[in-house]
Simulated assay, not measured.
Amino acid sequence: MANNSPNFLDEADPRLKLKVGCGTRNIFVTQLGESREEKNVNHIPVVTETASRILETGVNTLQQTLVLKRQVELDDIHMQLLMKQEEFKGHMNALAQRRAELELKQQETKNKVKKFEKFMEDNELKRHRALKKCQVAREQNLLKKREIEDLTEQLEKLQLRQQSLKKRVSKYKIFEYYLMNILDYLPENYLEYGSDSLVMPIIRRHETLSITHQDLMLRIGQLVEELERGQRQLEILKQEHTTNKLTTNKELSELQSQWDRLKEQNNQTEVNLLMDQGQSRDKVEEFASLFIAMRNLGEQCYLHTYGPLNDMDMLTMMDMVKEYILEKTDTGKKATRLMECGSAMTAGTDLADKSVRVSVKTINSKTQLKSSSKVSGKSGISS
């Protein structure tokens, strides 16, 4: 160990000093092309390798020291690896143990679940059985209650019958007493049924009366049934009559409403017809007055070239009046031109004036005819 231990190095040993040559100078360049003065420049050594690399490759580092360092590092790493392996084995054992415990717990849980499911199935079966028994017991209780109610009702009926029979026995007790007293006075041979017996006619009379009574009761029962049937038929007929009456009243109301609507429609139609007739009457009267005015105007403006006036239609008459008015206007225009030419044409102008006056008179007469026709039409409407 003493031989392998590293020797202590002296700090003053020149071998341990770092020697740096003249390397690249670091100069901060601000402008290109400027003249640089390199006076008083401090050169900074640049080291690009790590310290371990420098120690490994250094000339002054002992190889034995480096080997020992590597050996110590390897031992530490090996010990750490062994510790990690032991720790990993411990973890794996713990995991295996926990897995076994977990599997055991899972198995126990499954067993418990199976037991619980079986317990639930048993409880469900028991519940179904209990519900079925309860349902059967409930049905039996209902049947028993119904039987008790029926028996109670029968008992009440029997008690009522017993009371009625007791009343009947007490009612006919006097007859029993009477018959018992009669037996004391009857002869010893009253039970003989011979022809000379005195009891036989009474017995036969009683039998006849009983048979007649039965026939009468049967007949009364039949009559009562017939009466009930008749009453039921009467009720049915009454219901049918009521139903028919309601339906008839409904149909009658519908027909009445239809008749009212038709009556209203007829009244409206009659009013519309009267209005249409009044309008047509007004139109006819207006057309007649217009026709009369046109006839009068045609008589005043008659031209022989159009033929007789009576055979002339309305359009031809209007053309004649138009031509007459055009001729008169042309005449009036010519007269005005002649008046402008000179005083020599005074006679012609007088004639033109006369013609103008005549045309004015004809126009005035036309307007008067139109106004008179309108007044006559209005008087006809008001009448």
Rank of each mutant, 00 (worst) to 15 (best):
N111I: 11
D10C: 07
K370Y: 14
D10W: 07
E73M: 04
A344P: 00
L9M: 09
A352G: 15
K110H: 13
L290P: 01
N7Y: 09
L158Q: 08
Q162S: 06
L252E: 04
N272L: 15
K105G: 02
T329R: 01
L262M: 07
K245D: 08
S365F: 01
E124S: 03
D350Q: 08
V72M: 05
P187K: 06
S52A: 12
V358S: 03
E235T: 12
E156L: 09
L290M: 10
Q214H: 13
M180N: 06
N7H: 11
E149W: 05
K105P: 00
K374P: 00
Q135N: 13
C22L: 15
Q63R: 06
E207I: 14
L55K: 05
T109S: 07
F175L: 09
E56Q: 14
E117H: 03
N3D: 12
E240Q: 15
E240Y: 07
N266A: 10
L62K: 06
R70E: 09
K167A: 13
Q80K: 13
L223R: 07
K245P: 00
C341L: 02
S373T: 03
K69G: 04
R232A: 05
F28D: 14
E299H: 11
L143V: 08
S383D: 12
N26F: 07
I292L: 12
F287C: 01
M92Y: 11
Y302F: 13
P201K: 08
E228Y: 02
E176M: 02
L315F: 04
D313A: 03
L186M: 04
G230R: 06
L218T: 14
E235K: 06
E225Y: 01
Q63H: 00
D76F: 06
D313S: 03
E56F: 09
